[in-house]
């Protein structure tokens, strides 16, 4: 049984690609055959974040246009067994994606035994984003606790309910999950940032997890190694929780409350 999961948000820069890389890596680490597809044609970045940019020969668009076989375009991760990446094309634009081509490739990936097909959506609500969500069974909506991001997420939830294969065929609604990223419990406590409760109330979808604001995200993208691989960081712990929760395990939500800090930390932090 395969699951197609879109990582989407509407707004750019909220952590879709970071989340795609970490969730795909985390699920694969649990022994599930997983592929992450970069739908950001023209602005591909998933390969860079996952550290396989030098191994890209063929891409998603090449496969859609029958210029290469799917097996030739899939890049096998060198660190994690069961993890593959299908990079986007850097030279074409989003019009290169069409429902027939994308549908055919997703079907082929299912035939190859991929259990999780993670679709990393581009920003916006135009063609690329719509293609990324079109065949989804589930959606992880990545949101920052910030007004424009929340508004855009709400807009995307509207699209997920209307402009997808499931919606058009009258199938069951796409399951949606909220992932709140770049969260700062300290700012929330001071009343300077929307709280997880505020965002949940506004968007009305279940919470998958909260990822704290952390330097580790930049450091891991610098290295091309998803944060989840270095379990010492809070971001890795948060993404691990998300993966286990997503796979059906009970995990208490963390990183919502401010951590106890020493007096010294409180005075000078």
């Amino acid at each position: 049984m395969s699951k197609v999961v879109v990582i989407t948000s509407g707004k750019g820069g909220v952590g879709k690609t970071t989340t795609s890389a970490n969730i795909a890596t985390g699920i694969a680490q649990q022994g599930k055959k997983t592929v992450a597809i970069d739908f950001d044609v023209g602005l591909r970045n998933l390969d860079l974040v996952m550290g396989c940019e030098r191994r890209v020969v063929y891409d998603f668009v090449n496969v859609i246009r029958n210029e290469a076989k799917l097996q030739q375009a899939l890049i096998k991760d060198k660190r994690v067994e069961n993890l593959y990446i299908l990079p986007a094309s850097q030279t074409r634009d989003k019009d290169a994606l069409d429902p027939e081509g994308v549908g055919r490739i997703i079907e082929e990936l299912k035939q190859m035994g991929f259990e999780y097909i993670i679709c990393d959506s581009p920003a916006g609500i135009e063609k690329g984003a719509q293609m990324a969500m079109y065949f989804a069974d589930e959606a992880i909506v990545v949101t920052n606790p910030e007004v424009s991001s929340v508004r855009d997420s709400d807009r995307v939830l509207g699209l997920l309910a209307a402009k997808t294969s499931r919606a058009e065929m009258g199938g069951p609604a796409i399951r949606t999950h909220l992932l709140l990223t770049r969260y700062s419990p300290l700012m929330v406590k001071r009343g300077e940032m929307l709280s997880v409760g505020d965002v949940l109330e506004l968007l009305g979808i279940p919470l998958l997890g909260v990822i704290p604001e952390s330097k580790a995200v930049l450091q891991s993208s610098n290295k091309g190694s998803p944060a989840i691989l270095d379990e010492t960081t809070d971001v890795a712990q948060a993404y691990l929780d998300v993966v286990f929760r997503y796979l059906g395990q009970e995990r208490q939500h963390r990183f919502i409350e401010e951590e106890k800090r020493s007096l010294f930390g409180r005075l000078f932090g």
Binding site: R151, R155, G158, V188, E192
Partner: peptide
């Protein structure tokens, strides 16, 4: 230092209005 107006509640109020308004059109 904590006496500054709470911008988070302002954000929430503004969002509740805009989200409700946009949903009447789409959802």
């Amino acid at each position: 230092f904590k006496r500054a107006p709470k911008s988070a509640s302002l954000a929430k109020d503004r969002l509740s209005i805009i989200v409700a308004r946009e949903r009447t059109g789409s959802r």
